[in-house]
Structure formats: C-alpha cells, structure tokens
Simulated scan of single mutants.
Amino acid sequence: MQKLLAFPLTILYFIFFGLTLVVFHPIQWFCKNVFGYKAHKISVDWLQFFLMRCLNVLGTTFSFTNPYTIEKGIPLILVSNHQSMYDIPPLIWYLRKHHVKFISKKELGKGIPSVSYNLRHGGSVLIDRKDAVSSIEAIKNFAKRIEKNKWAAVIFPEGTRSRDGKPKPFKTKGLLTMIKHAPNALVVPITINNSWKTLRYGKFPMGLGANITFTVHKPLKANLFEDKLELISLVEAQVKSTIDA
C-alpha cells in the first residue's frame, strides 16, 4: 500500500523539486553577479531549505543533533558517511554559518539547474575520478582555500553512496590531502542515518516517511595528531559508531 501511495507523491515531489531548482538558478546568478559571494551564499542556503521542504511531501523528516559549540571563523573538515544525494541539503542548511563546500565529481558541474551553478561558482571543487593525479592536486588547492577562507569542506571518504545504509571502508588519500593542506582545521565526524531509505525502491518511486538523522561527534584538532592515519581511524570509528544499518 505504501509503495502504491509513493507513485503519485513521487511525481508531486519531482514537480516541486524541479521548480525549486529552476527558480533558484536565476536567483543564484543574480546574487552572484550583482551582489557577490555573500548574497550568493544566502541564496544557496535558502535553496537547501526549500529542497528539504520538497522532501517533506514524501513524509521525509530531518533531525540534526550537534551537542558541540563550533565557533565561526575556523576551517572545518566535515567527514561523513554517504547514503544519498539527500544528505547534502541538510548539511548545508544546518551548518550554513560555516560556509559548507563539497568535493564533487566533475559530471555534476554541468546540466543541473542551481546545483551545477553552485558547484562551479560557490567555492566547491569538481574532480575527475578517472584522473587520480589531477584529483589530488584539485583537493590540495581546495584544502588551501578552505584554510584561507575559514570555510567547511565536506568529504565522503567511502567514495560512493551506500545503497542499504551499511558503511563502506574509508579511502584515505583524499582525506589525508585535505588534512595536510588545511592543518589548522577541526575535523568533525558526522553520522548520517536513513537517507538511503528515500531510495529504497530505486529512483522511482521514492521511499516514504524516512527520518533522516545527522549526529555530530566530537571535533578533533588535526594539528594535535602527528600520525594522520591514526586521526582518520579515530574519525572513521566515530562516524560508524552510530550507523543503524
């Protein structure tokens, strides 16, 4: 019965989702080109808010638990498991005061209204997964930009999404590069649960009633760890400690 109900609600969701992306694309362009970075960032933040409201059509709810006070003006490396594209709007919205940026595959940099524009012009980095050398160089420059501007970089070290919520082993190279070239960053482990349930039937119809939760774990100062692999192992253990799968 729930799957039958998912068909019309998914169609309604896609209509709202598409309209949101189309409406915010020129808004982003106008804010960026007329008023600059700050206005563009605000438009991107509110885009995420409305994308989350679109998901409410499917009965999706969000819970963000962060018991730690993280001051503004500190570079952050946000390390999280990855379950679906719907991980992204809440991370940007709930952590918006930290100017959240992403490492994304280059294919997302074109063809998607609002999303591609933000990835190209909002401070994130696009990498070619087939070219490891250029990808690491791009991540290195991205880390330096995060350090300089005191922004927050999200990295999903699993390398791909988990389609059933079960975590995959962390790949360390990109994260090591981030830590090395943003040495003053706080490394913030985050656990995401239930995002994969929005795609439990595949892309169509979408799953109903997912309660997507985000749990922020204790931030760690990267420069206090001489052995960066030890730091990554600790972060991986924290992220996976509260995964429900």
Rank of each mutant, 00 (worst) to 15 (best):
N149F: 04
I112E: 03
F24L: 10
I103L: 12
I88Q: 01
K168F: 11
F16D: 05
S135M: 02
F17N: 13
K203W: 09
C31V: 06
F214S: 06
A153L: 01
P167S: 10
G18R: 03
L4Q: 02
T215N: 10
H82W: 02
I88P: 09
E230A: 14
Y94R: 07
L108D: 05
P75G: 05
V154A: 11
A182K: 01
L108M: 11
G111P: 05
P189V: 13
N194L: 07
I103D: 01
G111C: 03
K110Y: 12
H99R: 10
G209N: 14
F170D: 06
I139M: 08
F64H: 07
T65E: 13
W29G: 13
A138L: 08
L119W: 00
P183R: 06
N33R: 03
L208A: 07
A185M: 05
Q28S: 11
L199S: 08
N194G: 03
W196P: 14
E147L: 05
T215S: 12
D164E: 09
F225P: 14
K3M: 10
I243A: 06
L199P: 14
L12F: 09
K72L: 14
K203H: 12
G159D: 00
I190S: 09
N149V: 02
A39I: 07
V100K: 00
A39Y: 00
L9H: 01
G209P: 04
F214E: 00
D128E: 09
C31G: 05
F7R: 02
I155F: 05
F142K: 04
I146W: 00
F170S: 08
Q2L: 12
Y201F: 15
Y86D: 15
I11C: 15
K72S: 14
Y68V: 07
L55N: 12
R96Q: 04
V100R: 00
K168S: 11
H217V: 07
S104D: 04
F50I: 08
N118W: 08
E230P: 10
M178L: 15
V187W: 03
L176T: 03
M178G: 10
I92M: 06
P219S: 05
V79K: 01
D164C: 06
L199F: 13
G202S: 02
P8H: 03
H98M: 11
